[in-house]
């Protein structure tokens, strides 16, 4: 019994770490959606760009400073975040601004195209061979009563919690956060009330790019190989955002972690003891999603929005 408990706990811990990655990507979806009602389908590609920028930064640091250390990792992370700020601002300038008055649907289509373009551009710059990113923590891990947790996973979980907390506070407690909520509710009224709507839009794209860069930096060593298809993970994080409640920031982590745990436990212990679970592994996430949406159509933490027409 004890060993079964350890096995499942091990899978749950890995599921939480995997789910934290989903949560970070979902957070990017939610941030942009909350302020602009646009679903940014290039979120996964933003993450991929962040991971590549980080890889090349660390490569140039190590060529000038010697073997990779924790310091180069932090410098690489900071560099990627600075790049993300510029990149988010640039994306807002080229997609969101010119299309501000277009239907939301058109902007969503534009984000899909941006995703494809980014994959192509990164592929051209980085060359056809995929890269091997190094984990700043090597294979270091700690052991808690038989359960193994890698330091990288701890870092990922910590980053997800920290970023969700920061943005939750930001949206609900600061003037800028409230301005963003107002903009999402009614951009024209917000503008009339003195909210600098354009700045709000830039800011939210910058935030999404930062979150994406952090998730990219942390996911790359966990995924072992860095290639331009990394962005497709965004499609797995999307149901996480829906499950948690699209528009709810804490919902990102709730949805992400639930999906992460379902994935690892169903592939692990459940498949081991019940043969039929193996057959439905790839659809189990969707079954849970549909079941939750039938009971709570707005997701677990989502609130129903009532708009006057």
């Amino acid at each position: 019994m004890n060993s079964l408990f350890t096995e499942i706990s091990q899978e749950i811990v890995s599921g939480i770490a995997l789910g934290s990655i989903y949560a970070l990507i979902a957070l990017g979806f939610i941030l942009i959606y909350k302020a602009t009602e646009v679903v940014n389908f290039a979120q996964g590609e933003l993450m991929m760009v962040g991971a590549y920028v980080n890889f090349f930064l660390i490569q140039s640091f190590t060529s000038s400073m010697g073997a990779p250390t924790f310091l180069t990792f932090i410098l690489g992370l900071l560099g990627s975040i600075i790049f993300a700020v510029l990149f988010g601002w640039f994306l807002d300038l080229i997609i969101n601004r010119p299309m501000k008055d277009e239907p939301v649907f058109s902007i969503i289509m534009a984000t899909i195209s941006i995703g494809i373009v980014l994959r192509a551009i990164v592929g051209l710059i980085a060359g056809p061979m995929s890269l091997v990113p190094k984990s700043p923590f090597g294979g270091a891990h700690i052991q808690l009563s038989g359960i193994i947790i890698s330091i990288l996973d701890l870092f990922i979980i910590g980053a997800a919690i920290a970023l969700v907390a920061v943005f939750y506070y930001f949206f609900n407690k600061t003037r800028w956060g409230l301005a963003m909520q107002a903009t999402s509710e009614d951009p024209i009224a917000a503008e009339l009330m003195g909210v600098p709507v354009n700045k709000v839009y830039s800011l939210v794209w910058i935030f999404a790019a930062i979150v994406a860069a952090v998730s990219g930096v942390l996911l790359a060593p966990r995924a072992a190989i860095l290639d331009t298809n990394m962005g497709f993970l965004g499609l797995k994080a999307f149901p996480a955002a829906v499950l948690g409640g699209f528009g709810s920031i804490p919902g990102a982590i709730v949805g992400g972690v639930i999906l992460g745990i379902i994935e690892t436990v169903s592939m692990g212990t459940l498949s081991f003891h019940f043969q039929w679970v193996k057959e439905i592994n790839d659809i189990i996430v969707w079954i849970v999603l549909i079941a939750v949406l039938m009971i709570r159509p707005t997701g677990i933490l989502g609130t129903e929005e009532i708009k006057k027409v």
């Binding site: 091990q10 994935e263 690892t264 169903s266 592939m267 692990g268």
Partner: peptide, 21 residues
Amino acid sequence: KESFQRGTTDFTGQVGNVMKG
């Protein structure tokens, strides 16, 4: 036999299972 879908990035479950076996 343990399977996985293309695109999987976490193998805790599968590895745990062959270990149990």
